[in-house]
Computed example of a mutant assay.
Amino acid sequence: MSTLHEIGNAVRLRRTEMGLTQETLAHISGLSRSTINAVEKQSIGNLSITRAEELLDSIGLSMHVNSATPSPAHKQSLPNRSALDRAAATASVSYRSAMTAGQLERALLTGDAPDQIRPHLQALLDEAPMSLLAKVVDELHLEKGIVRAQVWSQMRRLAQDLQCFRRVWQ
């Protein structure tokens, strides 16, 4: 399977899970809608690494080059904290009180944003790397059996309720 084929499938799947149109993804990624369409249909003749990275990064995906045998240093650098823990810590950096992973999980599963964590959720949804948000979605899918599209939809509802400005939520 070619890299462009894998990218096209991954982009289409993530875009639909996130509830985005091709037009919205184009706006977010800085590419044209016709480029997004061509990538998804795998009919694009050539996609530069820079453009591919911009597209993938805008929806929390990335490209990796893997060697046949991972180095010992790579194994040690892998994070041992859950994505929910990392996201809660990221959202709490600027606040006196910290949001816990449990509070974040409840907010994402119920769509309820209690007053004490509303600023944390807004910071998370507006400023956290999309790759971290995608890892949170994957973690909830794998550990709780929640459909990815449902988690993305809850994030979008929370972001709209909190009046987040990030284009992906509009």
Rank of each mutant, 00 (worst) to 15 (best):
M1Y: 09
T3N: 14
T3E: 15
E6D: 11
E6Y: 03
E6G: 07
G8R: 13
A10V: 08
V11W: 14
R12K: 14
L13C: 06
L13T: 12
E17S: 11
M18K: 03
G19S: 09
G19Q: 06
L20C: 05
T21A: 09
Q22S: 13
Q22N: 11
T24L: 13
L25Q: 09
A26V: 12
A26G: 15
H27F: 12
S32A: 15
S34Y: 08
N37G: 10
E40M: 09
K41H: 15
Q42P: 00
S43M: 08
I44H: 05
G45K: 14
N46F: 14
N46Y: 15
L47A: 14
L47I: 15
S48A: 13
I49G: 12
T50W: 03
A52N: 07
E53D: 13
E54A: 10
E54G: 04
L56W: 01
D57G: 06
S58G: 05
S58A: 11
I59P: 06
M63K: 10
M63R: 12
N66D: 06
S67T: 13
A68V: 12
A68Y: 13
S71W: 09
A73P: 07
L78T: 10
L78K: 13
L78Y: 06
P79A: 09
N80H: 11
R81P: 00
A83C: 03
D85N: 12
R86T: 06
T90I: 05
V93R: 08
S94K: 07
Y95C: 00
R96M: 03
S97G: 01
A98I: 01
T100L: 00
A101S: 14
A101C: 04
A101N: 02
G102H: 08
L104H: 04
L109A: 08
L109S: 05
T110D: 02
D112Y: 00
P114M: 03
Q116R: 10
R118S: 00
R118F: 11
P119N: 03
H120G: 04
A123Q: 08
A128Y: 09
P129C: 05
M130I: 10
S131V: 02
L132F: 07
V137T: 05
D138K: 06
D138G: 03
E139F: 00
E139C: 03
E139Y: 00
L140Q: 04
L140T: 05
H141W: 09
L142R: 15
L142N: 15
E143K: 12
E143I: 05
I146V: 14
Q150R: 04
V151E: 03
V151C: 01
W152C: 02
Q154W: 01
M155A: 04
R157M: 03
R157L: 02
L158M: 02
L162F: 05
L162E: 07
L162A: 10
L162S: 10
Q163W: 11
Q163Y: 13
C164E: 07
R167C: 12
V168Q: 10
V168G: 02
V168K: 05
W169K: 00
W169Q: 07
